[in-house]
Design a protein around this nucleic acid. Sequence first.
DNA 1: GGGGAGAGATGCCGC
DNA 2: GCGGCATTTCTCCCC
Lengths: 257, 257
Amino acid sequence: MLSNNDVCILINDAIKRNETVVLACKCTVAYSGRAESYLEKGDRTIIIKGDHTLLVHQPFGNAAINYMKPDSSHQIFAEEKKILLKSSNTLQKEQMEIKIEKLYFFNSHKLEDGQTIVVTGTEEDMSRMLYENPHLIEEGFTPVSQEEQTKYGFIDVFGTDKNGNLIVVECKRYCAELSAVTQLRRYVEKIQESKGVKNVRGILAAPKITPNAEKMLTDWGYSFVAVQPPKYYEKFDKHQTNLSEFTAFGGSHGQIQ
Amino acid sequence: MLSNNDVCILINDAIKRNETVVLACKCTVAYSGRAESYLEKGDRTIIIKGDHTLLVHQPFGNAAINYMKPDSSHQIFAEEKKILLKSSNTLQKEQMEIKIEKLYFFNSHKLEDGQTIVVTGTEEDMSRMLYENPHLIEEGFTPVSQEEQTKYGFIDVFGTDKNGNLIVVECKRYCAELSAVTQLRRYVEKIQESKGVKNVRGILAAPKITPNAEKMLTDWGYSFVAVQPPKYYEKFDKHQTNLSEFTAFGGSHGQIQ
DNA sequence: GGGGAGAGATGCCGC
DNA sequence: GCGGCATTTCTCCCC
């Protein structure tokens, strides 16, 4: 049976070796930095990663309830009846204090991982799909650029309609909201200004749009086009040249519709 | 020494009992749902929570690299040389497959936590500070409402200046960007429309503003006020009536400046 | 390093 | 449930 002191020595050593440390405990969490927070006594899982990120997870929900960014300093030490975990990030002027009343388990191991995730079905994939399949916007749409940088933001797809009018397309993967309309409006106005032309059309491409957003869109003379975001597997991508075949879930799946 | 089969039985049982399960392993992760993703072989920490949330963490960085939402189904079983963890969420039409090549450690425990975090220094605190200290905006500013709901969004602080002009204040905790300006503009125009008055002033209150945002702001005749977000400790808040005294980091701290 | 914007965003609150 | 929006947002890309 390990004493609190033994546990603290083991954990401190694991942190020094940049291992990933996991512990489950009953604790309170106090944080001060960009904001202030306090979390009353309850059971949580704490992870300290090799890059000295610290995460506190409640036993439910997706997101960490408290955290410290990479390159924080952590020290864990035994008090009379408790274990104290103090973290600080002097650069970010943040600190955290975790008072551990009961330790349920802990473990640590050196973890190595140099991989980058490959994701498809993003907004960028969607704008590429529209660039390569302009008829999804409308007949006669001719794309000129994709993901074009401007001073006032970057435009997903930019082109002309069959009458030669400029078109700005803003994509959203989900239901488009008010902010998507103001974003589109910002681009359209910037193009009008920089190109010195009045007749610039704005098109919002998304699977859905909220009623308010649609009203604002039509009030401003823009239009909505219903488009589903693409989902498909890519065998290779620009970040990795040797991605092994991806056969999970039983092989080939849907292509761009 | 436990066999892969034994391990799988233990973990499946722990999941059934709604315990929190933590394991460290070398694995690949494939996900399909709202998007598709694949993560090549590397060392990760996997957490399955009591509400059947699943998280995959690389040994660095803040955010989970893959996850399954609460109420997913998980099954872990032994193959010849590997352990397979399959998760699915039929409601969300999502699935995940984790192929575990090497298991470094695993642990599980029943964790109970009914606490809610108390955070101060949020944007809402900032707008309350301005509502209660209107001179921080300008002399003669008289707030009328805070966090007012409108069709086109909700206005942080709303009031009048010393000449009786309406003022819309939008707060940002951080450096204000272009989107903050378009947000402000949306509210101002909506107020102009609904109240039938032209002279509505827009004020952006934030600690900083980007050059582009400032240009757009002045182009539109709005103005910027530098305000720091408040940071202070509250002994009580609306969510918890019996928050124990918060004495971490050595007692009392800064008040609203 | 700053600016801008997406995210498998998540989570909260209000209607 | 949807809508709107903040988040200790985080993360990435590009200038």
